[in-house]
Each structure stands twice: as structure tokens, then as C-alpha cells.
């Protein structure tokens, strides 16, 4: 680190500047706190009058006011579960490979580069890929399966990274003890390392679920902007509009007379779900810390 040795002058100005900048830093930080409170507050306040049991359990309307978001709630959960079901094995496998098999040379560096690139790829680009491959080339059109597979691409790098980091954090003594007891490498990974890393991976999984739940760009182009008229519709071949897509679609489409209210209510539901997920992660985290202490 080549930092030239500085000369610090302690003058009255430097003291004033110091105090001023402390104030500025506090102000910036508190601004973000205020932004968050304002944000969540505004979304909940707008959505509150709309939120009732009818809104959550009614089917949506196409032209009239008063529609609900029941199938969208179902589709959101269904798509998150499906996409995690696809991306979890791949992400776990790739994460295990990177932590335990790839060594430390070129292969690992290249894999990391690929994971980082995939993580940084804009979701609209993933959406285009899903549209070309699943919607058009495979002929699946806008459907749950196209959406789930494309959404999985968004999850894979996050799960891989979390798995790798959690596995590398397993204490060396634990693994050595396992080998010392005569376990094979696979046994050590499955029976010692993974259970130890499980809580870290689980936390990452919940965060991934939250991200997938909020994703919209990918699903607009792969799962479509229509929800099935049946409920519950588990078919993989029907279009599956989620909450976030619905929120965007009613806002930009503008045929619904109560689009504003529907959007506000949907946004409030999404914020509430995400706050709950966040709280869940925090509680799990705290429980683990208490246990390991």
C-alpha cells in the first residue's frame, strides 16, 4: 500500500472541518434510514385501504374494478418454489465443486469469473435468453415452465456463491477429524461440512427466494402477463402472471379503472411478504448465534 506519509495540521479549521464532516456522514446515513421509512410507509399507506380478505382471495378482473390477486399470489409462490427446486441442486453442486474440488488454480478463478458474470447479468438479458430458448425455440410459449427455468438462472449464481462461502467457513479441524475417522471425501462433505454450513446456505436461500419473488423483467417475457382462470392451476404449460408482473402490468396497461388501487395493494402485499422474510432470516440468524455461543 503506497500511501505517502501525510502531514496533518491541527488547526482551528481542521477541527471545524472534522466536526462538519462528522455531521455530514451522520446526515447521509440517517437520510437512508429516513428514505427507507418513508418508502415502506408510503407503500403501506397507499395499499392499506385496498388490503382486505376479498382483495387477497378474489380472481382478477380484466375490465371492471374490484378484482383480486388470488392467482397472482399462487403463481408467485409456485414460481419461486419451482425455480428454487431447479436452481438448488445446480447451485449446491457448483458451490461444492468450487469449495472442495476445484483446487486453487486457474479452474477456480475461471469458475468464479463465470459465477460473477452470471450474477451481474441484467435480468432483462436473462429474460431475452429465456424468451429465445424456452418460449420460442422449445415452443413452450409464455408458461410457468419457461418462467421457472429462466428464473432459476437468476438464482443459480447466488446459491452457488452462498454454498461456496458457507463450506469454506467450516472449521478445518472438523473436516480433518472426519477424515481421521476414516470418512471418504463425499462422506465428509455430506455428513460433516454440509450440516455445519446448512444454516448459512438456508439464509442465502431465503434471500434468493425474496429476490425471485420480486423479479419482474424475466417473468414478463417468459411467464407472461396472464393468469390462468382456474385455481389452483398447477399445470406447467399455462401462463403464470406473478404479483410483481401484475403490479407492473396493471400500471402500464391502464385498462382497469382501479389500476392504481390494485397496484398499491399489490405493492403493499409484496412489501409485507419481504419484511416477513427479512424478519425470518434475522430470527434464524439470531437463533444460530445463540446456539453457537
Amino acid at each position: 500500500m503506497n500511501v505517502a506519509v501525510p502531514v496533518f495540521r491541527r488547526s482551528r479549521t481542521s477541527k471545524v472541518v472534522d466536526r462538519l464532516m462528522r455531521g455530514v456522514l451522520w446526515a447521509i446515513a440517517l437520510t437512508f434510514v429516513a428514505v427507507l421509512i418513508l418508502f415502506v410507509g408510503a407503500i403501506l399507506k397507499q395499499g392499506w385501504p385496498v388490503l382486505n380478505l376479498g382483495f387477497l382471495t378474489k380472481m382478477p378482473e380484466t375490465l371492471d374494478a374490484g378484482g383480486g390477486i388470488k392467482p397472482q399470489i399462487f403463481n408467485s409462490i409456485y414460481l419461486v418454489v419451482l425455480s428454487l427446486g431447479i436452481s438448488l441442486p445446480v447451485g449446491l453442486g457448483a458451490g461444492i465443486y468450487m469449495a472442495a474440488y476445484a483446487g486453487q488454480g486457474r479452474a477456480l478463478r475461471f469458475l468464479r469469473l463465470c459465477i460473477e458474470t452470471l450474477a451481474a447479468t441484467p435480468s432483462i438479458v436473462l429474460a431475452l435468453f429465456g424468451m429465445i430458448v424456452f418460449v420460442q425455440a422449445m415452443g413452450w410459449s409464455f408458461s410457468i415452465r419457461s418462467g421457472a427455468l429462466t428464473l432459476a438462472l437468476l438464482n443459480i449464481p447466488v446459491i452457488t456463491r452462498v454454498t461456496e462461502v458457507s463450506l469454506l467457513a467450516v472449521p478445518r479441524e472438523l473436516k480433518e477429524a472426519s477424515y481421521g475417522l476414516g470418512a471418504t471425501k463425499l462422506q465428509t462433505i455430506l455428513k460433516v461440512a454440509l450440516p455445519y454450513a446448512a444454516t448459512g446456505i438456508l439464509t442465502g436461500l431465503v434471500l434468493t427466494a425474496g429476490r425471485a419473488f420480486g423479479e419482474s423483467a424475466i417473468l414478463v417475457f417468459t411467464a407472461g402477463t396472464n393468469a390462468s382462470a382456474q385455481f389452483p392451476d398447477f399445470r406447467l404449460t399455462v401462463p403464470g402472471e406473478t404479483l410483481s408482473v401484475h403490479l407492473w402490468y396493471v400500471t402500464s396497461d391502464g385498462t382497469l379503472p382501479d389500476a392504481r388501487e390494485i397496484a398499491a395493494g399489490t405493492a403493499a402485499v409484496m412489501i409485507l411478504v419481504l419484511l416477513t422474510l427479512n424478519l425470518l432470516v434475522r430470527l434464524v440468524d439470531r437463533a444460530i448465534r445463540r446456539r453457537t455461543r
Partner: peptide
Amino acid sequence: MRNLMRQVMDLLVGIPSVVYGIFGLT
């Protein structure tokens, strides 16, 4: 304050883009 800021940032990053959009719009 450090803990508070971590939580604030965690929440800000978790808010979906369409919700940011509707906040901007309304």
C-alpha cells in the same frame, strides 16, 4: 448505528424493482 445501517441496506436491496417503480410513479 452500524447494526441499524446494515438492516436498512439489507431491506433497501431486497425491495423489488417494480415497487421502486410504483413508488417513483405515485
